[in-house]
Every structure is written in C-alpha cells, then in structure tokens.
C-alpha cells in the first residue's frame, strides 16, 4: 500500500509505541463441558468393548472356527459374483436407458420412462421370486449371461437357473436406478461443453466418450458407489431363493448348530471388510476422474 510508505507528516498526532505482545503467554480457551462429554462417551465405548470381549454370548472361538471355512469362503465368492454381474449388467442397461430418456425420440423416451417407473415400483424380493418362478416355468429360456468356468465347477445345473434368475433380477432392478444416476450425471455437464464439442466437429460417439462421460462421472460416481455397496449387501435378499451366498450359508450353519450370534458376526465382518474395500476403490476411481478439477 502506498499509504504505509508516505513520509510521516508533522501534523499527525504522536502515537504511543505499540506494545510488544510476543513476550506474553497465550492461554487457550478452556472447554470443561467438552471434557465431560468425552469422559461420558469414553465410558460407553469402554462398556461396549468390554461386552464384546467378556460376554460369552459372542462365542468368539466359534466365530474364529467358522470365519474362514471353505463353505463361508465359497459363499463370499458367490456374493461377490452376484454383486459383480448385478452391477455390470445393471449399469450397462442403465446407461442405455439413460440415453434413451435423453434422446429426442418420444418413443424411446417413454419406453425408458416406463421401464424405470415399473422397476422402481416393484419390490426387489417380489421381482426376484417372479424371475425365479419364470425360469422354473420356462426351463429353456436362455438369457445369455456369461458365467465363468469357476462357477460351473461349483454348482449343480439346477442351481444355475436360480443363479441366473437372481442375477437377472438384481441387474434389472439395478438398471432402473443406474439409469437415473447416469442421466443426472449427464445433465450436470455444462451445455457449453457439448456446444464446444459440436463446434469442433468431434464425432458424436467420441463427444460422449471423451467429453461428456468423463465429466458426468464426477457426479455419477458417489451415487454409483452407494448403489454398488447397497447392491452388495442387498444380495443377501437372494437367500430366499436358496442360493448359497454369504447370508444364506450362515443361516444354514446356525440352523444346524444353533450358534446364531457368532455366525451372524461372521457374515457381518465379511460384509464390513468387503464394503471397506469397495470404499477404498471408490476413493481411487473418484480421484482419477477429478483431473483438472479444483474440488
């Protein structure tokens, strides 16, 4: 500032020399009630932890016995397969539906709208039972879902039908939600971006793939991660179809040995571990798509 470099004028009143505060001790604000809250919370946490360790009802030795048994590991693998196929097919169909709703054709728009309306209206469990019974009625119906060879080596032919029905149900249900998430993401991209791409003559598909989707991904990803995690836990619902996924197998085991609580803990800990891994993956994927962004 120029003012500070102005020569002092004679008329200016003589100001007292500023006191030197640097020698004084700084006393921070005290928060006694915060310490009371911390103490109360700490007691509750300690009680809970104490209960986890000392309450014999948790039966941690049973938990340890079953946590990594072959049956449970296979069940975790089925759960992961259901999640993977449900997500992959659900989002693939969801992207198609989203662009149908965004298209200029009234017919495509209303088909997509009706699909989304219908599949958001039907409870997942009802839909799953419906598909389960449909495959029961039409044994030759082939949905062409690619299953890896690892799956066939494990399951009987009868179970493939149930598994297909489960994947189909999860994917069709997921597609309705995925479509809205993708559409929201595309709408969030500034129209100026599309105009710039069009003005540069960039081919249509390339505009989508290179300009629109990478920017839409930023708003799609947090919602999509929510959906994947909720689908992952939601796979437990296919236990009604006697598919050997994690929750079904734990139920089978505690039905046999009566150790309900430790086996529910086996399922719980697996769900927590895998959700944590998904959240970590989400962090890295989001970081990839935030290139060039400031927040």
């Amino acid at each position: 500032m120029s003012l500070t470099s102005d020569p002092p004028t004679k008329e200016a009143p003589e100001r007292a020399a500023p006191e030197d505060y640097s020698a004084l001790k700084v006393v921070p604000v005290r928060n006694p009630w915060r310490w009371v809250a911390v103490a109360a919370t700490a007691v509750l946490v300690a009680q809970f932890a104490h209960g986890l360790i000392t309450n014999p009802g948790w039966e941690w030795e049973v938990f340890a016995d079953f946590f990594a048994t072959e049956t449970i590991l296979k069940a975790v693998w089925i759960t992961l397969q259901l999640t993977f196929y449900g997500t992959a097919l659900g989002f693939a169909l969801g992207i198609v539906l989203a662009f149908m709703r965004l298209s200029r054709s009234p017919f495509l728009k209303s088909v997509a709208f009706t699909y989304i309306w219908a599949f958001r209206s039907i409870p997942l469990i009802v839909q799953l039972l419906f598909w389960f019974n449909l495959t029961y009625l039409y044994k030759k119906l082939d949905f062409g879902i690619p299953f890896g060879p690892g799956f066939f080596s494990f399951d009987t032919a009868g179970l493939v039908g149930a598994m297909s029905a489960a994947v189909l149900g999860l994917a069709l249900h997921q597609a309705a939600y995925a479509a809205e998430i993708v559409r929201g993401g595309v709408l969030a991209v500034d129209t100026g971006q599309l105009e710039a791409a069009a003005a540069l003559g960039i081919p249509r598909l390339r505009q989508l793939r290179r300009i629109v989707l990478p920017q839409a991904m930023r708003s799609i990803l947090p919602n999509a991660a929510n959906e994947v995690i909720s689908l992952f836990k939601g796979t437990s619902i296919v236990s009604v179809m006697a598919i050997g996924e994690l929750f079904y197998q734990t139920q089978v085991i505690y039905g046999r040995n009566g150790r309900v609580v430790p086996l529910l803990m086996v399922a719980t800990v697996w769900y927590i571990i895998l959700t944590t891994l998904l959240s970590i993956a989400q962090y890295y994927v989001e970081r990839h798509f935030s290139r060039g962004a400031t927040r």
């Binding site: 105009e195 710039a196 920017q215 798509f289 962004a293």
Partner: peptide, 14 residues
Amino acid sequence: IGFVFQNFNLFPHL
C-alpha cells in the same frame, strides 16, 4: 469453421 465462445468452453478434464 472455427468458433470461439464467450465462456471459452475448454474441456476442464483435459
């Protein structure tokens, strides 16, 4: 035909 926009419309992720 080159077109230059008022708001630049650069692709922010590139």
